[in-house]
Nucleic acid binder design. Structure first.
Lengths: 204, 204
DNA sequence: TCAGGATTTAAACTTTGTTTAAAACATCTA
DNA sequence: TAGATGTTTTAAACAAAGTTTAAATCCTGA
C-alpha cells in the first residue's frame, strides 16, 4: 500500500501538471508516464482510463477552488451582500485559475451527460439555501416575485461566460491581458448591480 | 472540376450530417468516407485535415443561422426593440439548432486561438452599429452612461450560457425537455427586461 | 492523340489509448 | 522459514484514429 499510494500519487501529480499546462487533449498518456517516471500501463492500472484520471483531477481542482463559493452561498448573509460577495469571489477564482474555465468548458462540451454525475460540480450548483432566501424575500415582499433558478442562472451566466469567450472579447476590443482584467474587475460591481436592480421592488 | 466538386460536396454533406448527429469527436474519418461513398484519403485531399473540414462546416452552419441576428443588430430599430428582437431571435436560433451550441463550445474549448480567426464567428460578434447606438443614446442622456461592450457581453452571456449548461439545469431542477423550453421562453422576456432596466435612466 | 495535371485508390505509417500475460515484489500463514 | 497468495510492475502487443504515400486512373487541352 505504501509504494502503491506513491505511484498513484505520482501519476496524479504529473497528469495534473500536464493537463493544466497543455490541456487534456494535447497530453498523451505516454507523456504522463514519462513525467511520473512510471510504466505506461500503470495509468490504466490505477485509474481505469485517461478519462477517469481526468475526472479525478477535475474533481480535486473544483473542490479545492470552490469551497469559498459554496460557503458564501450557504451563509446567513443578506441577499444583497451575498450576491456581491459571491460574484466577487467567483470572478477572483476564475481569474486566478484560468484553467478551471477551460476544464469546465472541456466537460461541458465533451460530456454533458457526465457533468451532472460529478459530485463536485453538482454541489457547486446546488443552491437550496440561496433559493429559499430568494423565495422568502419574495414572499415577504422585500423583492419582486423572482424565480430563484432564473436569478441564479443569470448570475452564473454573467460571471462565467465572459471568461469562456475571453479571447474573442480581447480580439474585438483590442484589450490586452491587463485591460481584460480591468473589464472583469468592473463586472464585480456591474453584475450585482444588475441583478439587484432586477429584483428590486418597484417604488409605489 | 465537375466530378471533383461533387466529391468535395459529398464529403462535406456526409460529414455535416455525422457531425451534427454524433458530434465531431465521435465521428471518424473512415465513417465519413463510408457515408460519402468515397475513398478514405479523399478527405485529406480536399480538406487538408479533419480539423479543417470541421472548420468549413462550422463556418457554413454559423453563416446560415446567424444572418437574421446580424441583420437585427445592424438594423435601424430603436435600442429597446432591437434588444428584444435580438434576444428572441437568438434564443429561437439556439433552440432550433442545439448543435450549434455544442459546436460553439467545441470551438471555445478546443481552440480559443482559432476562434478569433473564424470570419463567421467574428462577424457575428462585430457590433459597430449597436455600439454606436448605445454610445449615442448615452450621450443624448436617453440612457445611463453605459459601456457598449459590457452591455453586449451581458446580453450574450445571458442568452448563450444557459444552453451550455442545459443538462445541469435540467438535472438540478428536474425539468424535462419541455420545461427547459419554457424556461428559455421565459428568458425572452426576462433578459431584455433586465438589460433595459440596467440602462434606464434614474428618474430624478 | 497523347502529355500533363487532377483525381482516386490501396496500402502503409504514426500516434493514440488500452489490454495482456508474465515477471517481480510483498505479505501472511502453516 | 518456506511457500502460497495477492498486489504491483513490466514489456509487448492491440485496435482505432488521423494522415501520408505512391501508384493507378481519369480528364482535358494543345
Amino acid at each position: 500500500m505504501a509504494k502503491s499510494k506513491n505511484t498513484e500519487q505520482k501519476i496524479f501529480d504529473a497528469a495534473t501538471e500536464l493537463f493544466l499546462e497543455k490541456g487534456v487533449d494535447r497530453t498523451s498518456v505516454r507523456e504522463i508516464a514519462n513525467k511520473a517516471g512510471i510504466n505506461l500501463a500503470l495509468m490504466n492500472y490505477y485509474f481505469r482510463s485517461k478519462e477517469n484520471l481526468f475526472d479525478a483531477i477535475f474533481t480535486m481542482l473544483v473542490k479545492k477552488n470552490t469551497r469559498k463559493l459554496i460557503k458564501i452561498l450557504d451563509s446567513d448573509l443578506g441577499l444583497e451582500e451575498k450576491i456581491r460577495k459571491y460574484v466577487e469571489a467567483y470572478i477572483d477564482m476564475l481569474t486566478e485559475n484560468p484553467l478551471l474555465v477551460s476544464f469546465v468548458m472541456a466537460i461541458v462540451h465533451r460530456s454533458q451527460e457526465r457533468i451532472t454525475q460529478m459530485k463536485a460540480i453538482s454541489s457547486l450548483y446546488s443552491t437550496p439555501k440561496f433559493a429559499q432566501q430568494v423565495f422568502d424575500e419574495s414572499k415577504k415582499g422585500n423583492i419582486k416575485p423572482t424565480s430563484p433558478t432564473q436569478l441564479f442562472v443569470d448570475m452564473l451566466s454573467l460571471i462565467t461566460f465572459p471568461f469562456a469567450i475571453k479571447l474573442l472579447i480581447m480580439d474585438k476590443t483590442s484589450y490586452d491581458e491587463a485591460q481584460f482584467q480591468a473589464f472583469m474587475e468592473e463586472r464585480k460591481q456591474r453584475i450585482p448591480d444588475l441583478l439587484l436592480l432586477s429584483i428590486k421592488k418597484d417604488e409605489e
